[in-house]
Design a protein around this nucleic acid. Structure first.
Lengths: 336, 336
DNA sequence: GCATGACATGTTATCGATACCATAATTTGG
DNA sequence: CCAAATTATGGTATCGATAACATGTCATGC
């Protein structure tokens, strides 16, 4: 008799099932984990016993023994934006179908949020990790290396990822948007960028290319991260006096772009005649609003899917690409 | 010497730390879990050893031994909508600060998505569960009862929750919106509702009250769940011919309401003169668009926070309210 | 000065499953 | 018809931590 406190109804364990089915516990384990190694007749008996006793396997115990938790940690700044909720959604779906569960970690936009979170998450011995961005503190990099866990980084395109990466180059994307505007005959430019590292990279590329085109950077505003519709409205209101001539605006997200457009409407600034707007993210909003907003589409759901598949490959001992770049493309709509 | 395969660098465990610090493993455990029961001098030695060896505790082992996983499962249909991402976000934050991690389960809108997910999640022996809605299959209810895990249900107001509940009455809310429109002198009504049970309850309340007011229900459309901006646009386009006189529309989410408004704009239907619109959810969108949209505000973030706190209370052996109703209120804006 | 108790630490026995090796049952081939 | 190969099952020893109890140490009070 155990001296431990037990739950209200001492729960059914693998030995109970084994006894009920007249087999060894190990056989029950096989029925659940490697069914092809058990005869059909035995498997039937065992499954019947499982059903009858209402056995729910304990994956904590299994994980300790097998040293595989079948859990994956996903760390993103927030799920309040489609930018991150989309990849997390598909990531969770794909891994769920493979029998893995996802622990969600929300790091916020504070620079040190990630460190503590990764440390905490590693105490659960995840079989894999999804991280946002590829710039991490040296402490984190060492921690990850020591843990020996497969890691996928998304939403970034560092040359030397910690382990694997599925993302794209934000600076290049900024360049592409500048080129797009220039091709439309624009000479005056503005950018509203959120304060996070990736939005900053997009801005850097955009600003650099504008200069190369000999364009004028009329205004450049940094918004709090995560930035939204209201931030876009406020920013546009602040720069409205500068909108005396035809100008092109790049917003760091579709929400920001939409906010700018709505504020422009309220102020009587014509879009796209006086103000051309390009957003980022291809949220449903930019497609559904009136006029629809030109945007840069990056398939976040796809990113999550590929990240999950690469992680699965590695966890199953197969090889997986070190660096996958997902395409981004400008979707031209009525706002430009 | 163990016959098990070991990781690349056999990882540091509690016995290693204990040896390095010259104490028993149990003392190391105490330093980490119940620091007040350890003398300051010993704690210092132990912490130094932990730091020096880079010890990362194994909560899988700890969980097996203590029968407390310190994990909570959160099951929502999707995180693509602010309706669910907001509560999940605060829920995760609050529990994270208390040392719990959240497993994310996305059940989708298929009726049987939840069953399998809950069953799978229980194999991890979570210390608590967050569920969306309060109508579950009998199998699930029994499973939860047997597991003896604290459960909070959100986004609903069933009379007899499975365990605890933090939500509100959707039908009542539909009634309130009908009253609000009626008070504004409306006699013609339309509703666009998503196909999920909660949107259906809002619709039922709205339709019932409209009838009580002697109003005309001009159109009633069911949208696919989860429904978005585009669904709202399409629905409005379909019913546009009916908008010959002043009409009031209740959308099942702010996204749907916004889509309807944008389509109305495209079709030259004046808002709010010919079409008054009320949404649901108080997303940033309804506040940030032009004109801003009247909506029913329900604080999803607050719901997540309270759910987390009640769960924490119960897990710590304290009492927690069985049924918490969060307020909802109509925020009147320019669309009505 | 010694019993009483509070506090700090150590010892032992699990928690519930799976890896690995051993053995039994079955099939295959010459 | 039997040895060798294959397949199915069982036994044992952990996985890494913590609960419960035992022990040791010191302060307090009468």
């Amino acid at each position: 008799m155990s001296s431990r406190p037990r739950g209200p109804a001492a729960s059914v364990k693998i030995t109970d099932v084994a006894a009920a089915a007249g087999v060894a516990p190990m056989t029950v384990s096989r029925v659940l984990n490697t069914p092809d190694r058990v005869s059909e007749a035995t498997a039937l008996k065992v499954r019947e016993a499982i059903e009858r006793l209402g056995y729910v396997p304990n994956l904590i115990a299994g994980g300790l023994s097998s040293r595989r938790s079948r859990m994956i940690a996903a760390i993103v700044p927030t799920i309040a934006s489609p930018m991150f909720s989309a990849p997390v959604q598909t990531f969770t779906d794909v891994l769920g179908q493979a029998g893995y569960h996802v622990m969600l970690g929300l790091s916020g936009y504070k620079p040190d949020g990630e460190d503590a979170l990764i440390r905490a998450v590693l105490t659960r011995r995840p079989d894999g990790l999804l991280l946002t961005g590829a710039s991490h503190s040296p402490a984190v990099r060492r921690l990850l290396k020591d843990a020996g866990v497969p890691v996928v980084e998304i939403w970034d395109a560092a040359e030397h990822p910690t382990d694997m990466l599925v993302g794209f180059d934000h600076a290049e994307l900024g360049v592409a948007v500048a080129d797009f505007f220039a091709a439309g005959g624009h000479t005056r430019f503005m950018i509203f960028a959120a304060g996070d590292p990736r939005a900053a990279a997009r801005r850097e590329g955009f600003v650099r290319r504008v200069a190369q085109h000999g364009g004028t950077l009329v205004a450049e505003r940094t918004l709090p991260a995560p930035s939204g519709i209201i931030d876009g409205r406020l920013a546009l209101r602040a720069v409205a006096p500068l909108l005396t001539e035809r100008t092109a605006l790049f917003g760091s997200s579709d929400n920001v772009a939409f906010g700018a457009m709505e504020e422009a409407r309220a102020l009587g600034i014509a879009v796209p005649q006086r103000l051309a707007i390009c957003g980022f993210g291809d949220f449903e909003l930019s497609r559904g609003c009136e006029p629809p907003i030109t945007t840069v589409s990056v398939d976040g759901a796809e990113m999550g899917r590929v990240a999950a598949e690469n992680l699965l490959a590695r966890m199953n001992g197969r090889a997986a690409p070190r660096r996958v770049l997902v395409p981004s493309r400008i979707i031209e709509r009525a706002s430009t």
